[in-house]
Design a protein around this nucleic acid. Structure first.
Length: 716
DNA sequence: CATACAGACATAAAC
DNA sequence: TGTCTGTATG
């Protein structure tokens, strides 16, 4: 391998990072500055120049997609297979460790992983068992609480109740939850990380073994690490370690799921002599787009500081369209899209981005009506579909009879006469003898304490699962999966459905067989194929609505757009309250994260950006009047161009809010109070100065025109 | 046991 | 407003 192939395609900053000496290195990589390239070339450099063996590298990413992209690019650059490289997600790598050291980590050998939905079901079951009211103990909140503790690396005994009773009870619940998971030999996502951390903390000899081995740690999207992930990294690196991390504080948008941008600051402190490299040259967007993005992000405090620049052209101005309502907004976008088809753009080169999923519907409707293929990101992924999870539940029971969540999921699916009462009896028995549902069922049948019909139904189920196990013991994985989907009765069950959905479900079950056939076994895996497949299914839940339309207009939230790029980007719904979202507006941290989200959105675009907002928007059934997003104000006027001048609109379109005159003006949608008419919303506004009149829709008194100077309206 | 209806709920979502 | 979930019902 020639060093020049590794180094030549790089710019100065990239080269500095790639060839950095063996020291802790922090690469601040702006959007579109070649972050992945640096990681890939760094790995190549370490192998080819520093002479490291791939076995000494540990590369961590957040998504499977990022991990496999890195693999592919390394293979393309070095021309060697990367099967045996330790490249993966935090969870994937933690899982790999725990499979090897399950005993030392105090886990059952065949432990299974729960996804978030399984976890929620588990919490619901526990609430029932503890006889707690779901209206008072909201399962989602408990799930949130438990995961938040795990993100911070905290076991129940280390969580402080802050003298708060409810919090104290939550901690109690967390304890019960842990026992319940242990009893069924299942772990949730957070538990994978926590166990992996504790493994290294409690078993210094094992830690030492990995420290000696992984001389080079590489971390992608470092700004997304949470507390426990960073703790784990620090442990693996040790004081002598020289981790190489790449991140961008301006693109940190996952605070709400535990990510800590502060880790970027901590890194410098925790690793003495950190070498910092800034990648600021952008190869993606026009100068206008970058300047707009820079101007917006400038308003955030405590940034590490970075300013994107490009050698390229200024490009077109950023276009701003003020829509009358959300329908008009969608129509505008679709019209523009059609224009751009005429200019030779492909559908997949166009992205419509929005803050929240609910906004996608109107675009879908309009695209459908216009006959333009599209693809919506998000939604249920393959391994999350109900019928797939049913089939997986049977397979999990084959692997581990004590898997209670799976037991409950399929005892009566397809229905075999195990009703709610019967299940209740089994649950009660399980609690009494402190055993799994499976063993409780065996006991309850031999005790003869149930009506014959229920007993027979239950034992039919036990026999079914035992039969599935013994019948398929010798089969290759995919035959086993096929056999289980058929013999469990799931296929027949969906066949009886008669509806289109039944047909689609059967297709998915067949697809599951193909997935099993296509499973690439890990080289040094000690797991039986079935167990490996089950773990794979949870950790890599597949694409959501993937190849629905190969070449379609891309619809997605700003969050899912991170890491992607498109020649043409529509950033829609730029209204205060929607983006920035209402729930983030009140605290500074939340607002700054929204601003980063806006920065992420803008920097997705290569050539053109359209910003749109609607003056009124129907959301959840009621009409809302929105003000243009404050982020629009943060873009310098000279970079913006309004698409539609005042012509056909009855009310003022976009006005910058930060002028003195407008500071006292009343905006459309403003809530006001009148001493006589009560509370209302400003619908319209005309005139200027002391002649300004506003139309207000009062909750009780109806719609009225009032002259501002006399009305004495109180802003709310 | 499948279907209909009522009621809750609606920020973002990887593993 | 639309979708999903849980339950009541035939």
């Amino acid at each position: 391998m020639d060093v020049t192939t590794i180094v030549d395609p790089l710019n100065d900053a990239q080269r500095e990072a790639v060839t950095a000496p063996k020291r802790p290195t922090l690469v601040l990589a702006g959007a579109g500055s070649g972050k992945t390239r640096v990681l890939v070339h760094r790995i190549a450099w370490l192998i080819c120049v520093e002479g490291l063996s791939p076995q000494q590298l540990l590369a961590v990413t957040f998504t499977n997609k990022a991990a496999s992209e890195m693999r592919q690019r390394i293979e393309a650059l070095l021309g060697v297979p990367t099967r045996h490289f330790w490249i993966g997600t935090f969870h994937g790598l933690a899982h790999r460790l725990l499979r090897i050291h399950w005993h030392e980590a105090d886990l059952a050998e065949g432990f299974q992983i729960m996804d978030s939905e399984d976890q929620l079901r588990m919490i619901r079951r526990l609430l029932k068992r503890l006889e707690l009211d779901e209206n008072e103990w909201i399962p989602r909140e408990i799930q949130w609480f438990i995961n938040a503790q795990k993100d911070e690396g905290l076991r129940p005994d280390r969580v402080n109740d802050d003298g708060d009773l409810k919090r104290g009870q939550m901690i109690e619940f967390y304890k019960h939850y842990e026992k319940m998971c242990a009893d069924s030999s299942v772990v949730d996502f957070g538990e994978l990380l926590l166990r992996a951390l504790e493994l290294f903390k409690n078993k210094p000899d094992i830690l030492e073994q990995y420290r000696a081995r992984f001389h080079h740690l590489l971390v992608d999207e470092f700004q997304d690490t949470n507390t426990i992930q960073y703790q784990w990294l620090k442990l693996v690196a040790g004081t002598e370690g020289t981790p190489f991390v790449v991140g961008d504080d301006d693109q940190s948008i996952y605070r709400w799921r535990g990510a800590r941008v502060e880790n970027l600051h901590l890194f410098e402190k925790d690793f003495k002599g950190t070498h910092i490299v800034r990648l600021e040259q952008n190869y993606r967007s026009t100068a206008n787009i970058l300047n707009a993005a820079n101007a917006i992000i400038k308003n955030n405090s405590s940034r590490l500081g970075k300013k994107l620049w490009t050698e390229g052209d200024p490009g077109e101005p950023i276009m701003l369209y003020t829509a009358f309502n959300e329908r008009d907004e969608a129509e505008f976008v679709i019209n523009r899209i059609e224009d751009y088809f005429g200019q030779g753009y492909k559908r997949s080169e166009i992205a419509v981005l929005y803050r929240s999923n609910a906004q996608s519907r109107i675009f879908e409707e309009s695209l459908l009506a216009a006959g333009i293929p599209y693809r919506v990101y998000g939604g249920l992924r393959f391994f999350e579909r109900a019928e797939i999870k049913d089939a997986l539940a049977y397979l999990r029971l084959i692997a581990n009879r004590d898997d209670d969540p799976s037991f409950e999921r399929v005892v009566n699916k397809p229905s075999r006469g195990v009703g709610a009462r019967t299940i209740e009896a089994v649950r009660a028995h399980a609690v009494r003898q402190d055993s799994s549902l499976w063993r409780a069922t065996i006991a309850i049948i031999s005790d003869n304490e149930l009506p014959k019909r229920s007993s027979r139904a239950l034992s039919k189920f036990l026999q079914l699962v035992n039969g599935l196990d013994s019948d398929t013991g010798e089969m290759p994985l995919h035959d086993q999966v096929r056999y289980v989907t058929e013999a469990s009765g799931l296929i027949a069950h969906h066949g009886r459905d008669g509806q289109m959905s039944g047909e689609a479900r059967i297709e998915n079950l067949k697809e599951l067989v193909s997935a099993a056939l296509g499973l690439i076994r890990n080289d040094d895996s000690e797991l039986p194929p079935l167990a490996e497949f089950l773990s794979y299914a949870v950790l890599e839940s597949g694409e959501g609505q993937a190849e629905a339309d190969e070449d379609g207009v891309q619809l997605m939230t700003l969050h899912s757009a991170k890491g992607l790029e498109f020649p043409l980007v529509f950033l829609c719904g730029l209204e205060d309250g929607l983006f920035p979202h209402q729930r983030s507006i009140s605290d500074v941290g939340g607002l700054e994260e929204e601003r980063r989200l806006c920065y992420v959105g803008l920097t997705r675009a290569q050539k053109r950006v359209f910003l749109t907002y609607a003056e009124r928007r129907r959301l959840y059934g009621s009409e809302n009047f929105g003000l243009p997003s404050r982020f629009i104000d943060e873009i310098p006027q000279e970079l913006l161009e309004e698409v539609r001048p005042a012509l056909s609109v009855s009310r003022p379109i976009y006005r910058p809010k930060n002028t003195l005159e407008d500071a006292v003006a009343i905006d459309i949608g403003q809530r006001v109070r009148h001493h006589k008419f009560g509370d209302g919303v400003v619908l319209n506004c005309e005139g200027s100065g002391s002649h300004t009149r506003v139309q207000v829709n009062f909750e009780r008194a109806g719609t009225k025109w009032l002259v501002i100077t006399y009305a004495n309206l109180e802003l709310m």
